[in-house]
Every structure is written in C-alpha cells, then in structure tokens.
C-alpha cells in the first residue's frame, strides 16, 4: 500500500473566502432570510451550515434557523455501510412547510447522499423550495442532481478523494485532494 499524496485545494484563507461568497449567494438565492432554513448533512455539512449561518447573521443581523440531517437510514446501500454504522443526530428546526431549505454539504460526488437527503426531508414536511449548497463539486454524478451554490469546482478522478477538514472536528481548515493509497 503506497502512502497517499495530499495536495491542498483550498487553504484556510481560501476556504474562508469561499464560504463568504457562498453565504452571499445563498442570500441572493433566497431573496433574504425570511423563509430560509439551512440544513447541514452530517458530519462536515453541519459545521459548514453553521459557518454560513454565522456569516449571514453578521451581514443581515438575523439568526437563520439551522438543522442537521443524518441520511444513514435513507441510504440505498445498507448492506455495505460497514460493520459499525455510526448514525449522527438529525435535528430539524420546526415545520419545514413553506420554507426555503438549503441543504449544505462538504463534497458533492455521486449525488446519492443528496438523493437520500431529499427523501428524508420529504418525510419532515413540504418545503416550498429546496436548494443545494456544497463547498466542493468534484463531478462524477450518478444521478441527475446539480448544486445551486458551489464553493469550488474541481475535476477529480475516480481513484482520488477530496477531504474537507474543519477546525471544529479536525483542528484546521483545509480542503485537500488525496491520491494514491487507501483511506
């Protein structure tokens, strides 16, 4: 097994600028904060949603309701989730009917996670609109799903992986491209 090689895609400052821009784009998309709800997908998406909502709060002075979604129970591959599945917290802030929900995730790849998230959200109510906001779009979709807000677009080959590191969980802010070796 070879040692994985790591290349930085976004350093801490670039990550911070990307989030700033994403926050503005989310606001433009939703025409303000009135019906806006940010839902992060476990785990890194939850942290990113938190950051974006803080940026919006700084600009607009409004605390945007935010929640967390764990899609493990909605995956289409239960038998392959590994022997010790970890199911994170799902926390939906109130009734989603009539809201504009923005799903926040770290990396968009096959689109299967987003498919599961859409199914799960539908079981919590009927938002008037759902948008998708991702930090990195690495291409390689297996489903007809596209993001509305993207922090960074990168072309990544099948054998490579994108790791999003955030201060709260990993001790530093960085996005890395990992190639070679195994996880």
């Amino acid at each position: 097994m070879s040692r994985p090689e790591r290349t930085t895609i976004l350093d801490a400052r670039a990550l911070s600028r990307a989030l700033q821009r994403m926050a503005v784009e989310v606001l433009e998309l939703s025409h303000g904060t009135d019906d806006l709800v940010l839902i992060g997908i476990q785990r890194r998406g939850v942290e990113l949603a938190e950051r974006i909502s803080r940026l919006i709060e700084k600009d607009e002075g409004v605390a945007v309701p935010r929640g967390a979604l764990d899609i493990t129970l909605y995956r289409d591959d239960l038998e392959t989730v590994g022997p010790k599945p970890v199911i994170g917290e799902t926390r939906i802030p109130g009734d989603l009917a009539g809201k504009h929900v923005v799903i926040v995730d770290d990396v968009l790849y096959t689109g299967r996670t987003v498919r599961a998230a859409l199914d799960e959200l539908a079981d919590f109510g009927r938002p008037k609109r759902i948008s998708l906001c991702v930090l990195v779009d690495r291409g390689g979709r297996e489903l007809p799903i596209q993001p509305d807000v993207v922090g960074k677009q990168v072309k990544v080959d099948r054998g490579e992986r994108v790791d999003v590191l955030v201060q709260e969980l990993d001790g530093r802010d960085e996005v890395e491209l990992v190639h070679g070796g195994l996880k």
Binding site: R75, L78, E79, T80, G82, P83, K84, P85, L108, R158
Partner: peptide
C-alpha cells in the same frame, strides 16, 4: 434489527472500489 440486517464489511469493501464510499 438494523445492525443485524446491515453492515457486512466484505460487501462494503467490494462496493467501495477505488473511489471510496458510495456516499461521498
């Protein structure tokens, strides 16, 4: 029931392939 129904690591490894987990 959930734990007994799922989580077969040999299948997980086969499905992962070179691209990592199915849910990126």
């Amino acid at each position: 029931l959930y734990l007994l129904a799922g989580g077969r690591p040999e299948l997980a490894d086969a499905a992962k392939g070179p691209a990592g987990g199915a849910a990126e």
